[in-house]
Computed example of a mutant assay.
Amino acid sequence: MFEIIKDPNFAARGIPFGVAEVRFPARESWDEAAFRALAERELADCRTRFADYDRKAVFSENPYFRFFRKFKKTYPVMQQFESVLFKGRPFPEGNPAATLPFLAEICTQVLSGAHDIDCLDGPLTIFTPDSRLPFDGMRAESTHTYPNDVCGRDGSGIIFSMIAGADKRTCVHPDSRHIFYPVFGTPDTPPAPILSTLDRIVSYVQVLAPAAEIETALL
């Protein structure tokens, strides 16, 4: 596992945080058709399970929904869930190594992400900021962390904020082969859903790239 440090201010909160580190083989060896078929099956299963979907019943007690609401934000996974399953938004095509956590989020309602380890500057430090700290978001817009947010930084700056999202510098690109998938927890999240989501991500990777090297950890 690549080096990950829990800052004391984060460690004291007891928030579970999962990581799946994946070393993908050359893309020529990936079975992208199998992953697309898997995604179709997973989404079809979700549509069946949530055929009588009621937002309040599914999300009102969701710890992520409640956590984002404290920051006056809408939980983005809820928006993705509704858009893909019920509003006709297509599942994103392109690099499956990048869309893989998106599928996991829809199926579990647990927040995850993806970052290129080769773009990290030194170890990853998980921390809780006490102020708004600026960084460049995935789409190059200037954004910021929030006090009591769950954030990550390396030697060159912030790479993710649970509330504001991922940075531009370490986001997964078509040539990324060494990737880590964070699975976020909140103060109210038990370890079980984090572990279950890690297992799901691992199973997706194994379908996409059976020769991939995978390591997981719950911090």
Rank of each mutant, 00 (worst) to 15 (best):
L208D: 05
L120W: 04
R177G: 14
R23H: 13
A33Q: 14
A20I: 11
R49V: 02
F24Y: 12
A34P: 05
I5W: 05
D118G: 05
R132C: 08
Y75S: 11
A217Q: 04
L111M: 09
D175L: 10
L124D: 03
E213P: 01
E3K: 11
K56P: 00
C119W: 00
E141I: 12
P134R: 14
G122S: 06
L120G: 00
G18S: 06
G157P: 05
R169Q: 01
S176A: 15
L103D: 10
Q79C: 02
V183G: 02
N9I: 11
D121L: 00
F86K: 09
R132P: 01
R69S: 15
F2D: 08
A51P: 10
P96D: 03
A192R: 14
G88F: 07
H144C: 11
L198A: 05
H173F: 14
V183E: 04
N62P: 14
I15T: 14
R89Q: 14
P76T: 07
E141P: 04
P96S: 04
S83R: 13
F86Y: 07
P25V: 06
H115Q: 06
T189D: 04
A209L: 10
R66N: 15
R41W: 14
L111G: 01
E215C: 09
S112R: 02
Q80M: 11
K73C: 12
P96E: 05
R27W: 04
R47M: 08
V172T: 08
F59K: 10
G88Q: 10
C171S: 15
A209K: 10
S142N: 07
E40T: 07
P191H: 09
L198E: 02
V19I: 15
N148Q: 09
V172P: 04
I126V: 12
F65P: 03
N148P: 01
L218K: 13
K56E: 13
D130L: 12
A26D: 15
M1K: 07
L195Y: 02
F184I: 01
T99E: 03
R47I: 10
P123G: 06
C119H: 04
T170K: 00
D175Y: 04
P129W: 03
F68G: 07
L100W: 06
L195T: 13
Y75W: 13
P101I: 06
P129K: 04
R89D: 07
L103G: 09
A11V: 01
R153S: 00
D54P: 11
H115V: 00
R36W: 10
T74I: 15
P129R: 04
L208N: 06
S142A: 08
F184M: 07
I126S: 00
S60D: 14
D167Q: 01
D7G: 06
K70N: 12
V202Y: 01
L195M: 11
N148I: 00
R55Y: 12
P63G: 12
I159D: 00
D121I: 00
I163S: 05
L219R: 05
D167A: 05
P210M: 03
R66K: 13
A26C: 05
S83N: 11
I4P: 00
V110I: 15
I214Q: 10
A34I: 01
P96A: 03
W30I: 01
L124G: 03
V19L: 13
D116N: 06
F135M: 01
F67N: 03
I201M: 03
Y53I: 06
P63F: 05
H144K: 14
I201C: 02
A166T: 03
